[in-house]
């Protein structure tokens, strides 16, 4: 029999899956020990497009509403149930740890546009090497302070975060925060406050999302 098993999430919940899969396919649990993967059968793995991505997300969110889950990347599929069982067995500790890490929490995504203008020097180049490095240092400092203004207060409300990576463009950053479900409203309020209070930044937040960015161990 051809076809694939499309895998949505990993869970340690004993309950029967509360949702339907893509294209109305039934969801099935494949167990290994106290872990289970939630799958559905399809002829082929779907290609990503706006429609199917939202459909996939809907399945994950329905699952998340009644159990702790680790969402899989879109497009994850295997050929046989044995493959799923092998993965669960091989990576058991990783998955158990991750489930503990995200239990009772959701992911919130924050984007900020930093409105400080770049230096509009009336006296532009040619300039010296020293001036170049000074300007770079200033850029880095500005980038860092903007991060402090937006990231710090939000990280304080979160269990953990994927902090903003230094980008070439000091005007924008995005970060993901793992937030206790009960604190989501506070987090949202804080974003609203930052947006209102900070002249130099425009902040917005989407979510709640399943904890896509927190399934892997990132600590160092």
């Amino acid at each position: 029999m051809s076809g694939v098993l499309y895998v949505y999430a990993i869970t340690d919940s004993l309950a029967a899956p509360s949702a339907t899969g893509l294209h109305g396919a039934a969801l099935r649990r494949i167990k290994s020990g106290r872990l289970a993967a939630l799958v559905s059968e399809h002829a082929t793995t779907p290609e990503p497009d706006e429609e199917v991505l939202w459909a996939h997300e809907q399945v994950i969110e329905e699952l998340m509403s009644s159990a702790t889950i680790l969402p899989l990347r879109f497009g994850s599929s295997v050929e046989r149930a044995e493959d799923v069982i092998a993965m669960l067995a091989e990576r058991r500790e990783e998955f158990v740890d991750a489930l503990e890490r995200v239990r009772g929490a959701v992911e919130l995504s924050v984007r900020a546009e930093l409105l400080e203008a770049p230096r509009l020097d009336p006296a532009p180049p040619p300039r010296s090497g020293t001036a170049y490095l000074m300007e770079r240092a200033e850029q880095e400092r500005r980038g860092r302070s903007a991060v402090e203004l937006v990231h710090r207060p939000l990280a304080a409300l979160a269990r953990s975060s994927v902090p903003p990576v230094g980008t070439r463009d000091p005007h924008q950053f995005k970060a993901a925060y793992l937030v206790d479900a009960e604190r989501v409203e506070d987090f949202g309020s804080r974003v609203g406050e930052l947006n209102a209070d900070l002249d130099s930044a425009r902040v917005s937040c989407t979510g709640p999302w399943p904890p896509y960015s927190f399934v892997a161990e990132r600590g160092r």
Partner: peptide, 26 residues
């Protein structure tokens, strides 16, 4: 203004707070 933490993917809107502008993410 914050909204209740509500998921409603069929509306394809996940905005929780703030006011996004797209120019930088264009």
């Amino acid at each position: 203004m914050s909204k209740r933490a509500q998921t409603n993917p069929s509306r394809r809107s996940k905005l929780l707070a703030g006011d996004p502008d797209f120019t930088p993410f264009g």
